[in-house]
Simulated assay, not measured.
Amino acid sequence: MGTEPAAAGRPGGERAVRDEESRVWETLVTTARRTVADGLVVGTSGNVSARVGDLVLVTPSGVPYDRLTGDDLTAVDLTGRQVRGTLVPTSELPMHLAVYRTTDARAVVHTHAVHATAVSTLVTELPPIHYMAAALGGPVRVAPYATYGTAELAENMLRALAGRSGCLLQNHGTITYGAGLDQAYDRTAQLEWMCRLWLTASAVPGRTPSLLSEAHMAEAGARLKGYGQRR
């Protein structure tokens, strides 16, 4: 008879799970540092998370990302109960958990990107200035303002995210999710770029930016589904 694979509850299986958590944590910290390097957050604002099984690994509250190490791994279950680490999880945990409970997300990135935050104070939906909005599911909505870290903000965010993988948070910032940290981050970067594009075009005196129609967006969305290399 062959040897059975180690189950999660056995020593070998538990080691494999912990190794996976460590690997994802390393990528998560790298992604968090990238948000600072790319100017999407300042200081300790913004936060990043990733799901591993039924656990959510998340950046801790108020700790500069360049100080995080492998020993600082912080994780909660889907109810918010802390099960890994001693550092207090981000205050925006309700938003992250709401995304994981209602979507197939494996990673979430929240930033205070300046152009996106500026747009969130001006409109209730980012005008369809570029077809890449289709990569987020369509025109990007703005979730009404609520105090950070509250259930109200998480609820507002979920309504803005319906059918989307990203939204703006009024007078606050952005949140995007994806199948992994790279995709979630790329969507955040694209959203910030589109907001900067719209603000730049709108600032030209006497001119109004041309916008894409629903048909344009639908066509772009269909083409984007086949974009990139096929395995």
Rank of each mutant, 00 (worst) to 15 (best):
A218F: 01
Y65Q: 14
L197A: 00
V52I: 08
L212P: 02
L191W: 03
L93P: 12
R34S: 13
G12W: 08
R33L: 05
G53P: 01
E192T: 02
L136T: 01
L40W: 12
V109H: 06
H130M: 06
W25K: 13
T59I: 04
Q229C: 10
S202T: 09
L87V: 11
V42E: 13
V56E: 15
V123A: 03
G138R: 00
V63F: 13
G163P: 04
T188D: 06
L122N: 00
A118R: 06
L57Y: 04
H130G: 04
V142N: 05
T111V: 07
L199N: 05
Q183Y: 07
R223Y: 13
T30H: 13
L126D: 00
T74W: 02
A37R: 15
R51C: 09
G2V: 11
C195E: 02
L212F: 03
V204A: 12
E219R: 14
L212Y: 01
M217Y: 00
L153S: 10
L153K: 13
Y227R: 12
V48S: 07
L87K: 06
R187T: 05
R141T: 03
G206D: 12
V142G: 09
T27S: 15
T124F: 06
V41C: 15
M1R: 09
I175F: 04
G226T: 14
R15M: 10
E152L: 14
L93M: 13
R159T: 15
E192W: 00
V41A: 12
G149V: 09
I175H: 03
R223H: 15
T188P: 12
R84A: 12
I129C: 00
L28E: 11
R18P: 08
V123I: 04
G180K: 05
L168P: 01
T121G: 11
V109I: 12
Y100P: 08
A222P: 00
G39H: 08
R230L: 14
